[in-house]
């Protein structure tokens, strides 16, 4: 609360100095049906404050604060979706922007794909163990190549570092037009101590990290807009604890096709292979975007989770329909 008060006070001071301050937000009510439950729930509700300070001729600072205001999310699940609070300081044209605070780790698709608003999720829960992490970094664009460098604690949001070990994440991503397709190819690398869950302990994920491990990660990602078809691909290879340990592998493939401007179908398949086991998710869905407003959208997804570990095989299905309301 103290942190929020300080931030709010700082933003209020900036407002009084004649700078711009915007308040927005979103709510995510949903209905979920599975073998175990049939439930209406509020996945989350958030307020988003954005502050902008400008001089006579250029932007000097941009700050954003995401405040969780309600919902069913708790523990570590809440921590991967809510709690962004950062400031950005652009140094000028063609120069990097300094980013400070609690922000999304710029690894793979996470850097450009706002999965926070989606039912489908990439593999970051299993591959990294977190999404938001406090730290300091650079981001920018050189020509048509985006780059990001992020130095962070590796302990997740709203926590101090517990081991002095920092996590370094870097990504470069050139983008180009190839015929009627626009492609972005990303190369990411990450090294450092991060929360660790084995596949058979993922059920304890909401309780937060019980242990940490040094993680080595290399990722390739691709986003392609080819007419109404949007493809998102990601491949991750890495090691946990030591380079002498067995390889861990992850992959993610998502395709969206716009039938018309207001209706889109999507399919997704991902996997994470570690500890001699694997976890996979297969999803199919349909999204509705109302024609004359961006204030809301409806997402519907049928998902099958498959887990194979030493304890045996497990499979679960779930149907989720979610309303995304932007205020």
């Amino acid at each position: 609360m103290k942190k929020i008060s300080l931030f709010v006070a700082a933003l209020a001071a900036l407002t009084m100095a004649g700078t711009s301050l915007k308040v927005g937000g979103a709510i995510y009510p949903r209905y979920a049906l599975s073998e175990k439950q049939s439930t209406f729930e509020l996945m989350g509700a958030e307020a988003i404050l954005q502050g902008q300070v400008t001089s006579e001729t250029r932007d000097i600072m941009y700050a954003a604060l995401q405040v969780y205001t309600g919902g069913i999310m708790s523990g570590w699940f809440k921590g991967i979706h809510f709690g962004e609070a950062y400031a950005m300081f652009p140094l000028g044209l063609s120069l990097p922007t300094i980013k400070v605070g609690q922000a999304v780790v710029p690894f793979g698709l996470l850097e450009t794909y706002d999965i926070h608003t989606q039912i489908v999720q990439t593999t970051y829960v299993k591959s990294l163990g977190l999404r938001l992490d406090p730290g300091l970094g650079l981001t920018g664009v050189l020509g048509r190549t985006r780059y990001a460098l992020w130095l962070s604690n590796g302990n997740g949001p709203d926590r101090m570092d517990n081991d002095k070990g920092k996590v370094v994440t870097a990504r470069v991503a050139p983008g180009f037009l190839l015929g009627d397709a626009e492609l972005t190819l990303g190369l990411s690398g990450l090294y450092g101590s991060l929360p660790y869950w084995s596949l058979d302990s993922l059920a304890n994920f909401p309780k937060g990290p019980q242990s940490y491990a040094v993680k080595y990660r290399l990722g390739l990602d691709n986003t392609t807009d080819w007419g109404p078809l949007t493809l998102r691909l990601e491949g991750i290879a890495g090691k946990d604890s030591s380079l002498s340990h067995p390889l861990v592998l992850g992959y993610y493939a998502e395709a969206r096709y716009a039938l018309v401007r207001w209706l889109e179908v999507l399919g997704k398949y991902d996997g994470w292979h570690a500890n001699g086991g694997r976890a996979n998710n297969l999803s199919a869905g349909i999204n509705f975007y109302p024609p004359n407003t961006t204030a809301y959208e409806v997402q519907t997804t049928y998902q099958i989770d498959m887990m194979k570990t030493g304890a045996g095989d497990e499979s679960n299905w779930k149907f989720i329909t979610q309303l995304v309301v932007r205020i």
């Binding site: 609360m1 929020i4 008060s5 709010v8 006070a9 933003l11 209020a12 407002t15 009084m16 711009s20 301050l21 915007k22 308040v23 927005g24 988003i48 404050l49 954005q50 044209l93 063609s94 920018g140 664009v141 020509g143 048509r144 407003t293 961006t294 204030a295 932007r326 205020i327």
Partner: peptide, 28 residues
């Protein structure tokens, strides 16, 4: 103080429009 700060903030801030389009590559 926190509540009044937030109220003050809301009174002085404008509403963020959901329809605003970002500028993706200002440098280029």
């Amino acid at each position: 103080l926190s509540v009044s700060s937030i109220l003050g903030l809301l009174l002085t801030a404008g509403a963020a429009s959901a329809s605003l389009c970002v500028w993706r590559q200002p440098d280029a």
